[in-house]
Write a protein that binds this DNA or RNA. Structure first.
Lengths: 348, 348
DNA sequence: CCGTAACATGCAAACGATTGCCAATCGATT
DNA sequence: AATCGATTGGCAATCGTTTGCATGTTACGG
């Protein structure tokens, strides 16, 4: 026998509704799930709905999921949510799913592959109907396993192998940044790069280098500093640049944040962006256009990215085949890189 | 009869472990839950654990929750996650709960009270063990209902009534901002305020005004512009200031973002922050110290806020009484407000 | 007027755990 | 050797749904 909660103060269950309406439990279930088997106009259905409302019945998703195996929940694994880029994408994802009546279960993961896997397993244990991965590294055996297990999943922001993914065309973005620096006369350039094991970073670098290869301008590898995506990374890289006797005249930072770090560090050396050096950032966050010297930046459609990811995963969950989507960025040229280089040649 | 998933490819259940180990189902449950009733050293316990590992058994949280009523999940309601402040706090929350073996279910809500309530109800239907509310307005009847229903909850970031909350001392922050502007000689000041129905905004304003009241300096109400917390809000407010024939010399923006908006808009009028006007921001995000002209800003311990919120909610869930916590901010004075006003008086 | 399709209900077995109660076991104490 | 107390393990009910099958009802065409 069990006496945990004997009081009548408990919740209203289907059993209560059934008793009150004078029908069987299962009938209530069918009517309320509006299963296609039962038209909604029959007097019984009307009565059940009325009683349910009167009693304030609310379905228990737990019990339903246990029995049906479906949870109407998708799991989302993301890194560092405090990164605006990530947060914006997640916000879009959440809204899209919420609109379709799904709930998202968000877990943060570090950049270690193991951590992502552990967190994803946690989500799978919760029986999510689908999985959105925003933290996978380029070589992630774990994702292969997902495919084999036939679990609907989708990568977002980062690619890996030939797994379906919704990403930004980072190669193109890097290319655009490179073209911009070339077009403004820069021949000696530096890059504030992120970790090379993450597709976003390596793609941007590749595109950037392609631009210079096409223009047949060599890029000194020692000017490519893998520092990271945050403000401090920019400062670090800046110090490296400034130690060269011939520092680069044009800099591509892989994040607006690291671009700000560069601005700050250079500033402490008395150097001013847009005058003493050119700078191109990435992601075109709302702040970038509003700096004292507005920042040239590659704009990424982050919100659309999240929305598309949600749509595609929903399609996959419905059994459809989907193909990866790659969204194109656009370059916004502003004062930080708009001047021609070398300066004053025309007037000298 | 039921034939939904007859295949043996299903998951490993306790029943399987019990059969394999030659003990009763319930014994397995007790050992694996390491209920205090069963010491873990008995041979049966050892065997069960061994078998469980061999079979790759993993508990189904759904089934466990259904029976036990506990989910080891807390619900979190927040607004606009793309706001770094909110995202940072959430990140801290998630990490803290994750460390305690809880999962967080995050839902985004708009600023409308109804929406928050709807989203919270969704979470309650999922039987969360506790609720963290980051989107409540000042007058929120919904939270009262929670108290009556005896559900462990906690407000975070925003206060409401006498509900337990972990917040920043925004009044103090506003005061500090005000003191700074006064100390640097400003007598005509403007405020870029947010919505007054949210405690963060109204508290900051109140503190700011207290500083001026104490110093017996009047503040012109038409210089207080309720525009919002984002970049565009700053631009908007700046335009309002500039339409006055005597624009304020010192400006308090309630967010670093809106501060950036002000910088941008003034800049387009040829006005430079730190020289032509002083500016104080709020939250001291990583970028603020790295601007060309570093921004004076009130620093809030956001990460600590999230961590404390998690700790306190856990305590409440364990039945302890908790008292609200209010974390003190600290002012970081930088170039944007460091100069004395009016300028050049000493040298003139 | 009957056979039958079509549909609305009812029945009961799951889904996979937790847990109150009780019987059995075991060691120690008298 | 008998008794007592404490552990241990088994039993079965239960959490609140979903769902395959069987039954009952209605309507309709031939």
């Amino acid at each position: 026998m069990d006496n945990t909660e004997p009081g009548p103060g408990s919740r209203v269950t289907m059993r209560d509704v059934a008793r009150e309406a004078g029908v069987h439990l299962s009938t209530v279930s069918r009517v309320l799930r509006q299963s296609p088997l039962t038209s909604s106009l029959t007097p019984t259905a009307v009565k059940i709905r009325k009683v349910a409302k009167e009693l304030g019945y609310e379905a228990d998703p737990l019990a339903a999921s246990l029995r049906s195996g479906r949870t109407r929940t998708v799991g989302v694994v993301m890194t560092r949510l405090s990164d605006v880029v990530v947060a914006t994408v997640y916000e879009a994802i959440e809204q899209a799913f919420s609109k379709s009546g799904f709930q998202t279960l968000l877990v943060g993961a570090s950049d270690e592959p193991d951590d992502q896997q552990r967190k994803a397993d946690l989500l799978l244990a919760r029986r999510v109907d689908g999985l959105l991965l925003g933290a996978s590294s380029l070589d992630d055996a774990f994702v292969d396993r997902l495919r084999e297990q036939n679990i609907p999943y989708l990568l977002v922001l980062r690619r890996s192998g030939d797994h379906p993914a919704v990403t930004l065309d980072d190669e193109l973005g890097g290319y655009q940044a490179g073209r911009d620096l070339i077009a403004h006369g820069h021949r000696r350039v530096g890059v504030v790069a992120g970790s090379s094991s993450v597709s976003t970073g390596s793609d941007r670098l590749q595109g950037f280098l392609r631009a210079f290869a096409e223009a047949e301008i060599p890029v000194d590898p020692s000017y490519i500093v893998a520092a990271g995506f945050h403000v401090e990374a920019g400062r670090e890289a800046a110090e490296v640049f400034l130690q060269h006797k011939n520092p680069p005249t044009g800099i591509f930072a892989m994040t607006d944040y690291s671009a700000l770090g560069v601005i700050g560090a250079y500033r402490e050396h008395g150097l001013k962006v847009g005058r003493d050096f050119a700078l191109v950032g990435y992601h075109d966050m709302s702040i970038s256009a509003n700096l004292s010297i507005p920042l040239t930046s590659v704009h990424s459609p982050l919100y659309e990215l999240g929305a598309q990811a949600a749509t595609l995963l929903l399609a996959r969950m419905a059994g459809e085949e989907v193909t990866s989507v790659r969204l194109a960025p656009t370059l916004n040229v502003r004062e930080s890189s708009a001047a021609m280089w070398p300066p004053d040649r025309a007037t000298a």
